[in-house]
Amino acid sequence: MGLLVGKRIFSIVALCMMVGLLLLPVVVALPSLAIGEETHAGDAAKKDGDKVEKGRDVYYKTEGIVSGAPAPKTTDGVKDYPRYNFESRVLLWFANQQHLYYGSFVLAVPIFCMIIEFMGVVTKDKALAKRYDQLAYDFIKISLTAYSLTAILGGILIFTFLTLYPAFFSYLSGIFRPVMHIYALMFVAESGTLYIYYYGWDKMREGFLKWIHLSMSVVLNVIGTLLMFLANSWIGFMMSPAGVDEQGRYLGNIWHVIHTALWNPLNLHRILGNMAFGGGVVAAYAAYKFLASKTDEDRAHYDWMGYIAMALGVAFLIPLPFAGYWLMREVYAYRQQMGITLMGGLLAWLFIIQATMIGILFLSTNYYLWQAMGRMRGAEKYQRYIKYLVFLLACGYMVFITPHTMVMTPAELKAMGGQQHPVLGNYGVMSAKNGGINVIITTTVLSFVWYMRGNKVSTVSWAKFGNIFMGVFFGCAYFNIIFLAVYGYYIPANVRVGLSVPQVATTLSCLFFMFALNSFMMKGAKQMGPIEWGKISARSQYALIMLATAFTWMMGLMGYIRSSVRLFWHVNEIMRDNSPWAYTHTVGFAANMISANVLFFWITILFVFWLGSLTAKKVPVESKAGIPGSVPQPAPSH
């Protein structure tokens, strides 16, 4: 009894410490935030007897007291751009990308842990609850090693900035001065919370203590998300500056500097992207462990782990293109020219590569789900229909990756009769591409629905009606998506973008309504046979590795696109890049650089996985009993 009370006190103290750590940066910042930057500047000016100088915010168009120096006008020399005998931009690109890969991984994994631990707490089935708990513990163990590496890479990144771009870094850190130390203190809070969360796992495994532990994961993720939002405000400021006048002088309102035109779209897009990326990396880890497994029991465990990670990753991948559309819409609203550079100008071919990668992600996901049906009896009934899904995916994919115009020789141009192919040219416009990607996503939803009912037969009295309704709903959804895509050809381009909204609504209707209907139909369903975890082809695991690699590559690509759209500006229209590397790289060089980054990340993350495998200790030992091994056991849920 005394031990239990002791544990409770320990847990509550730990949680209070975390909340304290979370509030620490705010408390430390209160004096400067309460006094306000403007007052400082105003007081300083009054003391000198000067007239207070005011400036006009370049974005918000409000007036503010000038509280900072103008953006430095750099020159191509060792003063502003000290260098090694190598392109500084490439070194910075490498350091930045590696830090970002690891940063997004260690921010995503605790969110997974929170979701999986919560599933374990609310699950009625004790054996399944322990399996979820074990899985969450496995996840956090992986991220702990990666966390140290993230901090090291962050240090390398800062040194790279200070050494190679001192003028730029000095200006940016000056603008964000009121929140720079908050960012640093957030790291203290994040580290403290993560270590208490990880090392407290054993002591807080039951009842009330488990809820305290779960609350810690919420605190951990709040800190992690705030950290990311602050980091996003820097890149938001570089793309769409606000809170400064046209000379780049800070006007005293830090909220304007943080809350730029692109900040919130970037926040949403990055949260979803991090989650999908984290899911992909963990799924690849599980696939690697599955392929290396010696026993059926291990194979079953890692098969299940791979499935859960993939399902969580794809759950965030599905809304990701829509968040991307919002981001692009805001880019166009902020500066139309910037949008045109991205989608129809200098960087347009990179978007074709992006479309190719998105297609690969969805194709890999579908392929994995079709293979995964092999681990359940009763799913054979869907096998003969898969070829139709392949046809739909292939059609959607081909439309999605068709470029608007090709780079051609005069002879080729003449042979084709113009810049655009007479038939295929029609598929190179956004109207067709919106239709293509929505068909792909809807097909992925359909694959998921089939997978979820693979080994079950509905026993509800309206099962026949439910099945027919589901078929009709998907059929009408496909028709509606294609109808709206065709409609787009009959209206001007500037209003055509409005058609993407009902298309997205159609896809999301399929996602939410059909998942809900399927859940109702499968309540108390008859099981045709158990899910035989571990009984899956090796090909499926390579699909998971493909999924993760494609994701890593695409993150590198999109980071490059987002960065290079600033062209020759460090801070768009405020601080010019006068280094010898202000030009935009060729597509080929960029692709090679992205590939090198991906390769380096995967080599190092394999090292992290190997380090994690050295600590073979598994906390809830009893959970092993719940993992179905060579003898198939009924899995009560997905």
């Binding site: 309206w462 009606f465 309704f469 509606n480 609504a505 159609t506 209707s509």
Partner: peptide
């Protein structure tokens, strides 16, 4: 409920509900 399980009736009812839903959604959002 048994009438709804008749394939023809199920198909007609499903089509009415689904087509009606998508027309309303498209109409409203456009």
């Amino acid at each position: 409920m048994s009438a709804l399980n008749n394939p023809v009736i199920a198909l007609v009812v499903s089509l009415i509900i689904t087509v009606g839903y998508f027309v309303l959604v498209d109409h409203y959002l456009m």
